[in-house]
Amino acid sequence: MPRKAPEPVQIVKQRRDAALNALVSGVPYITFMGISFDRRGDEVTGVLSFDDKLIGNPMLPAIHGGVTAAFLEVTAVISLSWAYIWEDFESGALDVEKMAAGDLPRLPKTIDFTVDYLRSGLPRDAYARATITRAGRRYASVQAEAWQDNRDRPFAQATAHFLMPRPD
């Protein structure tokens, strides 16, 4: 019985990168903050590129607590949306070209967001990853962690709940 040939690797990569890029670049605030995303398969990592406008305490100096919260929230929303649309763009049900042209899926809405500040954010790049603890039809629970030099020494962590978009 003949098996279907696997998709060429560059087609797969291009589709996934285009979908992630459309999701991220569609949100002005993510661009404003200088946040980008690295992708390895379906795993995404938020990257906050350091800039002077992210400083909260010029004396130390340290990254603004609001920036840290925002970075974790952006990473949580993007990771959740990404997981939510993954099957649809992989199967072709969601047209990546349309997404890139601005026809984006609806985003989850934040219900609540709690951030713990573990140590001060240094004036350099930061990274964050989110784990979806539960993805229900209507609600989702997400945890996120941000670190700088050392993955095992996070400077902040967050727990959040989201209201999922209703299927059209």
Binding site: Y29, H64, G65, G66, A69, T110, F113
Partner: peptide
């Protein structure tokens, strides 16, 4: 400010900007 939009469809400000405002105000 349009640069702070979090949802391009609704043009609502991102929660992150609200967090930064709350944090600054609390401090």
């Amino acid at each position: 400010d349009e640069r702070f939009i979090g949802d391009p469809k609704t043009r609502v400000i991102h929660g992150g900007a609200v967090s930064a405002l709350m944090d600054t105000c609390g401090g």
